[in-house]
Design a protein around this nucleic acid. Sequence first.
DNA 1: ATTATATAAAACCATTTGGTTTCATGTCAA
DNA 2: TTGACATGAAACCAAATGGTTTTATATAAT
Lengths: 114, 114
Amino acid sequence: MSSSAEKHDVFQAIADPTRREVLRLLAEKELPISEITSHFTMSRTAIAKHLHILSEAELVSGHKVGREKRYRLQPETLKELKQWLSFYEQFWSNKLTKLKHVVENPEENNIKGI
Amino acid sequence: MSSSAEKHDVFQAIADPTRREVLRLLAEKELPISEITSHFTMSRTAIAKHLHILSEAELVSGHKVGREKRYRLQPETLKELKQWLSFYEQFWSNKLTKLKHVVENPEENNIKGI
DNA sequence: ATTATATAAAACCATTTGGTTTCATGTCAA
DNA sequence: TTGACATGAAACCAAATGGTTTTATATAAT
């Protein structure tokens, strides 16, 4: 699944549906691996690997409590994603920006007949 | 790389750095495949495949103009991502929500000494 | 009519991904 | 101290991913 250092970023981490589901679970509360696993059909080992990837991306953090390892959400990391998104937001949300874009790119508009 | 129908979603599509770079390029203006390719070191075929994936995810759309196929950004699709993000936003941006979260999950706080 | 350009489509390939099973280790409870 | 529980780690595997090269086809330009 993975292994080496600093490999997974936020974009890769959230690409997998299972990992997104794990994030949802951890949004509610901190949970140990076994309890997270109980919400899925796949093996505990598979979930543990997903948690490693999420951890590499710093979307979650784990700490041991007794014999269990509890993971919690690290939501601040998603700011990175929000910032990436904000760049594109102008292209749909702002009518004026959209108009500006259209004016500056006349070749996109089928007005060649004029 | 891919092929079948309706396979790639937005999350998968933006997971690849090359594809994010392609989106950046198309944010400025509509471009034909060959011109997009000129911004990368990899082959045109590879870029074409990336464009297919972006197209499947409806992040871009292509239309033929003469012998070239021009792709343009379809930014509205990113709303989906924004909505996904908005759920998590409460966990970092809103101090009150954060406090609520803390209060409702006492086991996360190391106050066992009290 | 011929040649150059732009893309499409297919076959192929190495690596990564997402899963499994098995075995080892640390911790709690009786 | 002896199980039972929770995890870690390794070996293995099929399928997906991200690339390549080759061949074919449609359009543009001379």
